[in-house]
């Protein structure tokens, strides 16, 4: 009897917290399909009585949300592809090459993980400005490509690839690029998928850097566009919620499809040495 009560209570608490996690999303979705008069109904109505697509149509016609949408897609995909490529090549070199100063250089790379983004924000802004990359895709993409964390993650994973496999290929006369693309990369697939997913999600959601580097609205990414929308159409709540849905839902669907990689990706974090 006591055991049953325990189980009931524990489930009740979990359901309560899970609901509080989900409710903001449900409300956002429901409001985005409401007409203005239904939004200001109190107590709130969860399922709109007269659902409408008008908010979404306005979003893509009147406000032109498609440009930021494609900007975000271009930026997130580019950063992900380049970052995975650079992180795996560097991770391979740091785990399997032998060269002078290897471990010292790796330590330097590691040290940059600890520095918060705000610390480097202003100098990076000045450097990007000096390179003439303000208001450009290059400015949005290039500073985000080299990720010390991704390099670290790939190196740790590649350490577990047996040396004999690589040595055997080298003895057979294979060049490093062949070894890398034909042996190391295929074996590193799980790690690559994990950092690709995290990098994509991270760059889709990133806000402070795009806010600073893209002041021209042609280069707005979705988070910047939706923050501007909230300011400009502060009284049009349906439109704001539709905007939020467009930013959030693609990543949410992406997450639900790839959730096992997300769960795997955070597990090694707790095993970090510190």
């Amino acid at each position: 009897m006591k055991k049953f009560f325990c189980q009931l209570l524990s489930h009740a608490i979990l359901v309560l917290f899970s609901l509080s996690m989900v409710i903001p999303f449900a409300w956002m979705l429901s409001t985005s399909f409401k007409k203005p008069h239904e939004i200001f109904v109190f107590p709130p109505r969860w399922i709109p009585r007269e659902p409408t697509l008008k908010n979404y149509l306005d979003l893509f016609r009147a406000v032109n949300f498609s440009r930021p949408f494609f900007n975000t897609l271009i930026v997130a995909v580019s950063i992900t592809v380049l970052s995975v490529l650079l992180a795996s090549t560097a991770g391979y070199a740091f785990s399997k090459f032998r060269f002078k100063g290897r471990d010292k250089i790796f330590l330097l790379v590691l040290a940059t993980i600890m520095v918060p983004g705000q610390m480097t924000l202003i100098p990076v802004f000045l450097i990007v400005k000096q390179l003439g990359m303000l208001n450009s895709y290059a400015g949005l993409i290039v500073p985000g490509v080299a990720s010390a964390f991704n390099i670290f993650f790939m190196r740790q994973y590649m350490l577990s690839i047996p040396n004999e496999l690589i040595e055997a290929a080298r003895i057979d006369g294979a060049r490093e690029d062949y070894v890398f693309f034909k042996i190391v990369l295929p074996l590193s697939r799980p790690a690559i998928v994990t950092i690709a997913i995290f990098t994509f999600t991270g760059s889709w959601n990133s806000f402070l850097w795009p806010l600073v580097v893209a002041q021209d609205e042609r280069y707005y990414t979705l988070p910047v566009a939706v923050s501007v929308l909230a300011g400009q159409y502060s009284e049009n709540l349906g439109l704001q919620m539709a905007g939020s849905c467009v930013v959030i839902l693609p990543i949410l669907v992406f997450f639900i499809l790839t959730q096992k990689y997300f769960m795997k990706g955070i597990a090694p974090l707790t095993g970090l040495k510190y």
Partner: peptide
């Protein structure tokens, strides 16, 4: 995994 800016509007 949710964008802070977008969900902040909801909040």
């Amino acid at each position: 995994v949710t964008n802070t800016v977008a969900i902040a509007i909801v909040w």
